[in-house]
Write a protein that binds this DNA or RNA. Structure first.
Lengths: 223, 223
DNA sequence: TACTTTTTGTTGTATAAACAACAGAAATGT
DNA sequence: ACATTTCTGTTGTTTATACAACAAAAAGTA
């Protein structure tokens, strides 16, 4: 059984609670009926159709945001990890059903906050709530920008362009030409929305041409 | 010259100012140095690389959110219209450059609010500011959900599936099997990320097969 | 260590889409 | 009303990708 206290420092430093002092944070965690929950690999945290009224903060592990298309083809919208939030936009849009699944990729620990209850109780009056909503606004902004970047990735017309766009963006995020990606080949293909084998083929072509080098999940962009 | 007063009622009823009384709204407009600006067709309101510190609210007209890909191919991320906001996520993420263009599709009127100035002045203290940030959080949530839906649209593997997914989503939004879309063919193709002529061909095939009927921009889904 | 399962890379073939070029329709301007 | 421009639909050809089937490598298990 995981205890909240084990993660206290991490929680305190997460973007959700940025700018709060200990007192405010502790008050908030109580007000929100904060609890920690553990999931195993391949468990579903959120399902399409769920109504979300909790804030989910990943404390440990990796989670796929997925969507199953009409004929069961899987689309990976995003890969989230430590300090990321799940389905925050459905907390903001009340009574809107989730249009995504959140599926664990590894053993995962999540902090869950009962958003609804607290906001109706304190009427947004307390300082900590003001800080929180400001933070949530900023977090959602970032998510938004990343979704736009993902749209850019999948909107390239060839597999080659999708790969190069994706890898360049990753290099930029990591501030280095050499970096590790979190996707395995199948997941990357589902993220870029292409066939895995065709993508593998294109990857080795890019390597042969000297544009990139890779070994398993370590990639390097060559000038 | 357009005057703010001409749009006062519309502004009052927009999602940005939802839940405010006249006094709060007027105070806010003043505090934000609200002004109205007119754009002609094909003008660029926001450019990639801009730092955004204003809130933009469309009062009249239509605006494309676009991105130019590496070799000048155009991607349409979204088509916005009356009561929608432009680039709100870049207001939330300070000092992040816009990664999109906002381009008018017709003559357009926009309300501009100097977000930065006001928030630094009033320190989030006033009631109206609390209402505002709550509203912005909800608006951003909706945008987020729509971006995910767009990802679903463009992630279909065939033109046919993209069209059917898009048209079904539109029908659902309009609560009717018969509806009008705002895109012309080229824009729709850029939105779905396919070749226009191939898309035209697929549309008429769908019509011949009896799945849809259309005339110009009016579409009907047949069971 | 040997065995099984999962992941990744390779190839050939069928298929769908991009592209180019054009014609007709619709909209716009004079 | 006419000319001009923009938009839409159609077709043939080229090209890239999905798909299937398999081999090799890596990871996991007994």
């Amino acid at each position: 059984m995981e205890r909240l206290e084990n993660y206290y420092n991490q929680i305190k430093n997460s973007p959700v609670f940025f700018g709060m002092n200990d007192e405010e944070l502790k008050g908030l965690l109580e007000c929100f009926n904060a609890r920690v929950r553990k999931y195993e690999k391949d468990e579903i945290i959120i399902r399409q159709g769920d109504i979300i009224s909790n804030i989910y903060l990943i404390l440990k592990g990796d989670v796929n945001i997925e969507k199953d298309s009409y004929w069961g083809r899987r689309i990976i919208i995003a890969r989230l990890s430590k300090n990321d939030n799940l389905a925050l936009s459905f907390v903001g849009s009340k009574n809107v059903e989730s249009n995504i699944d959140a599926v664990t990729v590894s053993d995962t620990v999540v902090l869950i906050l009962g958003y609804e209850k607290c906001t109706s109780m304190c009427q947004n009056a307390c300082t900590r709530h003001k800080i929180l909503i400001n933070n949530l606004f900023q977090i959602l902004s970032k998510e938004n920008i990343e979704l736009i970047q993902k749209i850019e990735n999948v909107s390239q017309k060839t597999i080659r362009d999708k790969l190069l766009t994706y890898l360049s963006n990753e290099a930029q995020k990591k501030h280095s030409n050499s970096f590790e990606i979190k996707f395995n080949r199948q997941d990357l293909a589902d993220y870029l929305n292409v066939d895995r084998s065709a993508m593998s083929f294109e990857l080795s072509k890019l390597q042969k041409e000297g544009l990139i080098e890779y070994n398993k999940n370590k990639f390097e962009l060559r000038s």
